[in-house]
Amino acid sequence: MCRVSRSVWIHTRTTEWWDSVVPTFTEAQWIKNLRMSKDTFLYLCRRLQPKRIAIALWKLATNSEYRSISHLFGVGVATVCHCVHDFCSSVEKVLMQEVIQLPNSEKLKEMATYFECRWGLPQCVGAFDGSHIPILGPEEYHIEYFNRKGWHSIILQAVVDGRGLFWNVFLGAPGNLHDARVLRLSGLWDLVDRGLLLPDVTKNICGHDVGYYVLGDAAYPLKSWLMKPFTDNGRLTPQQLVYNHKTSRARVVVENAFGRLKGGWRCLLKRNDCNTHKNRALVIACCVLHNLCEMNGDEFREEWVTGTFNQPDGALSSTVEAEGLDARTGLMKLFTTM
């Protein structure tokens, strides 16, 4: 029987591009191809493995096909897949707790000062919203993941500070859930209601005691710690209109954060052919990378954002409570006297 050498069937790969070309990258090329500066990349390399990191970043940043990335780096397609999933899993386990943290009392005070100086909103410590992440329809309960936009997704709920850094993320709720329901499931609601997140630090604003709060859109309920706009029924008072304008202008920080997240890490714009668990690690890794790049002042190119902004989801919520009304009234009076 004629035996054919195995080498005939093996595709010879070259690592010349990685070994020779990448070391000559300019700073602009690092930003363009890997969505981060060389310094940020080297920081990751000190914690993880350089070439595997570069392969994973290339996939997350460009959403290129696995086969094209395998040719570029001179490795097998399966290796690319393993690199991406191993990297995302490692980032979630090793870096997430360092980079995305619930704020302590000192940090809350700092965030409130920034919001007040930047947008004139006293006691505000963040803004939050939800964004849909495309997925393959799961075999089980696939209807629950089919969102009102007509495709399968999981929901990323995030809270950001005034600079657009994530300080809390919750991921995995099925795409057909209302934003207010996702908030209840996330654990953030329970933390605040039990007094484990926002300390009882209040300011008297126009005769109303206002504690720390975050900004949400009309889909969320009004709470003492969650300020939402007045529902525009065509009969809003001038004071209410001013309040809506000022809070909406500040809340754009979370919309911008989602735009920059998806613009920088374009794998989030199209469904990824992996299960929900691996998708979760991938999205969390992108959130961590977003924070790292923002904290290090890495260049972000506005053309990356085109078509990525999150659209409002869910019907309006009319849920209110007395404490929330009191705080919102105080802020409304303040804004119309400024």
Rank of each mutant, 00 (worst) to 15 (best):
L156I: 02
G264R: 14
G150H: 07
H132C: 08
L57V: 05
G330P: 04
P103V: 10
A281P: 00
W304D: 10
V210P: 10
I135R: 06
D326A: 10
S131G: 10
D200H: 14
F300W: 07
G297K: 10
V84D: 04
R52I: 01
L334R: 03
R47M: 06
M295H: 11
L165Y: 15
Y213D: 02
G263C: 12
N33S: 03
E294S: 13
L269A: 08
E140L: 11
V160Q: 02
N63Y: 11
D273V: 04
Y114V: 15
I10R: 15
G195M: 12
W30I: 05
D86K: 11
L215G: 07
W58A: 07
S153W: 01
R46P: 00
L48A: 01
E116Y: 10
V77W: 09
K93F: 05
K223L: 08
V253H: 02
F300P: 12
Y114T: 13
V242P: 00
K59P: 01
L72F: 06
A219T: 12
P134E: 11
F41Y: 12
N168C: 10
S105W: 01
P174E: 02
L289K: 04
V22T: 04
G164C: 03
R163Q: 15
M332D: 04
R35K: 08
A322R: 13
I155P: 02
L261K: 05
R301G: 06
A28W: 01
I55N: 02
H11V: 14
E294D: 04
L60Q: 07
H277P: 00
Y145R: 04
T24A: 12
F73D: 05
L72M: 08
